[in-house]
Design a binder for these strands. Structure first.
Length: 286
DNA sequence: CATTTCACCTGGTGGC
DNA sequence: TGCCACCAGGTGAAAT
């Protein structure tokens, strides 16, 4: 479900609603797959902590947590632990009231002192939940979790070009590699390649400097626009409040196989690349 | 090392 | 209606 704009939308929603709320109880499902940190350690680590703030890095949602005691209830307090949520393909993170029906495939329920709940729901169980203690002797900048790749919203032209230099793999595969760029997935890879007029199969290292810069700017623009529209709801994505996004209405190629290109009318083509459905306009993209 | 393929899961859709 | 093939927002391990 979730790429950078969807994850950003969810993180902002959870931050707005749960900042300075306190976790009073934690329940987890019996399926082992979603738990990168064992359930018992997560339950023990989370219970009693204050949520100081929630943000996104790559496709990960990071909840900054304060110490259990003393009850430091200030958003500027130093975090002592983190709860890291990766949504995989079908994960949802929802702020609910306890009386709302529990959806099938709910794997985590955090009860909060405000009376609300934070729920993690994930039918396919590709998502992951992780709990980390932070070393208080280290500055927060070095101890905080960060996704490995560069952030596509802020990367410079030189750094972006350097990612692809000498690489023989397809540009689309490079865009999906999270150790290069953090947060780009199948939708925004296809859409940004369309807007920069580049064929997905082109070798990353053979793009001209001008093409690479077009791609960087198109990618940034598409991601920023998608964040403003609350992400893409292709089938079932919703934000932390259960609200669908609207960027799917702006898709030019993704899941538009056979439909006319919005720019030239040529039918959109679908190929398989890096194991993923890949959509492009054979006329607009060279 | 770089790159490609596949397994991990459930659910929805469309053809027969 | 049922059955089956195929498709779906991701990623990490294994193979090449």
């Amino acid at each position: 479900m979730p790429e950078l704009p969807e994850v950003e939308t969810i993180a902002r929603g959870v931050d707005e609603r749960l900042r300075l709320d306190r976790i009073v109880d934690a329940w987890f499902s019996s399926h082992p797959q979603p738990f990168k940190t064992p359930r018992a350690r997560q339950a023990k680590g989370l219970t009693g902590r204050v949520i100081l703030g929630v943000h996104r890095t790559g496709k990960h949602i990071v909840c900054e947590l304060g110490a259990v005691s003393p009850p430091n209830v200030s958003a500027t307090a130093q975090p002592s632990a983190q709860w890291i949520v990766h949504l995989g393909m079908t994960g949802r993170l929802l702020v609910t009231t306890p009386d709302q029906p529990v959806a099938p495939h709910t794997h985590a329920r955090l009860s909060l002192s405000s009376g609300r709940e934070l729920r993690f729901v994930d039918p396919r169980r590709f998502g992951r939940l992780e709990f980390r203690e932070l070393d208080f002797r280290e500055p927060i900048k070095t101890s905080a979790f960060r996704a490995p790749g560069s952030e596509p919203l802020t990367i410079t032209a030189d750094a972006f070009a350097a990612l692809f230099r000498g690489r023989k793999l397809a540009i689309k595969a490079a865009l999906l590699n999270q150790t290069l760029l953090a947060g780009v997935g199948n939708i925004y890879a296809d859409e940004s390649l369309f807007h920069s007029g580049i064929r997905p199969r082109r070798a990353a290292g053979r793009l001209t400097r001008a093409e690479i810069e077009r791609l960087r700017l198109a990618l940034r623009k598409v991601l920023e626009h998608a964040i403003i529209l609350g992400g893409s709801s292709v089938s079932d994505y919703v934000d932390a409040n259960g609200v669908r996004g609207f960027f799917q209405l702006e898709h030019c190629v993704y899941l538009r196989t056979g439909q006319p290109c919005r720019s030239c009318g040529t039918p959109i083509r679908r190929i398989l690349l890096a194991g993923r459905g890949t959509h492009f306009c054979p006329r607009c993209q060279r």
